[in-house]
């Protein structure tokens, strides 16, 4: 069943045309990887789906509810669409536990105890329950990013958007975050992720989407895209990636 429908989406930043008629479907339990060079519109697309950016034409529908800039609708939608950012964006003035429990308490109106009961299994699973009372600046980048993922998951989202979540990490910390995403994928979480980790995309994605200068150029199984890309820009992009040893 189609869970997320993106139809002919156009997005401008001023005169800069960043998304040009993007159309994309995401079914439940699918893991879709968005690949493409920097500035191809991957992050913007994710931010539009979450309503953090307004679109100028087309439509985005999540679970039969259209994403608009209407305040109450966005607040409702965001309860089950989580997003994790490249730069973690943890709340620096709150402890790990407070970061994870804030949204359940304030948005889902859970009591502190209930919210902590939601947070505990996630924090235990990422091995940071012991550090629950630390502030984010005491954690490594990988730990912070895992907390950020736990924070998004604490809202029990039906769709998780991951915006280049390993790009700001030191290479040796990438693995621990990707492993966590892999486990989520195996558990059936519906995910749409922008990534530069081609190896990860090849192993985990149910479908890979190549964006080029705001246009969705190609979509297919990882096999099709990585071994048999049909479009010229896709071939060039993958060639550069291979040369940079990112695959």
């Amino acid at each position: 069943m189609t869970f997320l429908e993106v139809r002919d989406v156009e997005k401008y930043f001023g005169t800069n045309h960043v998304l040009k008629g993007i159309t994309l479907d995401v079914d439940e339990h699918q893991v879709i990887c968005l690949i493409g060079a920097s500035g191809s519109g991957k992050s913007t697309l994710l931010r539009c789906i979450n309503g953090l950016e307004a679109i100028q034409a087309g439509s985005i529908t999540i679970d039969d509810l259209e994403v608009t800039q209407e305040e109450s609708r966005l607040n409702f939608l965001r309860r089950y669409v989580g997003i994790v950012f490249q730069s973690f964006n943890l709340f620096p003035h709150k402890t790990v536990l407070e970061n994870v429990t804030l949204a359940p308490r304030k948005v889902l109106m859970k009591s502190r105890e209930e919210a902590e009961a939601i947070a505990e299994p996630w924090l235990t699973r990422i091995g940071l329950w012991e550090k629950r009372n630390d502030y984010p600046d005491r954690l490594s980048g990988g730990q912070q990013q895992r907390v950020a993922i736990a924070r998004a998951l604490s809202m029990q989202p039906k769709l998780l958007l991951l915006d280049e979540i390993t790009s700001a990490l030191d290479p040796e910390l990438v693995g621990e975050v990707l492993t966590m995403v892999q486990e989520l994928a195996a558990e059936g979480m519906t995910m749409l992720l922008a990534t530069h980790e081609m190896g990860f995309a090849r192993d985990c994605a149910s479908s890979v989407v190549f964006l080029h200068q705001g246009v969705l150029l190609e979509q297919g199984t990882p096999d099709q895209i990585f071994t048999n890309p049909t479009c010229e820009p896709t071939q060039q992009f993958l060639k550069r990636v291979i040369e940079a040893k990112r695959i």
Binding site: R47, L52, E71, N75, V81, G82, F91, A103, K106
Partner: peptide
């Protein structure tokens, strides 16, 4: 602004974002 983005994306309203995330910082 990324703090606002993070808070709003979790479903917090504008007022809640101000109260719990932005003003304390």
């Amino acid at each position: 602004w990324s703090q606002t983005a993070a808070a709003r994306s979790l479903g917090l309203s504008y007022g809640q974002t101000m109260q719990h995330v932005i003003v304390p910082q």
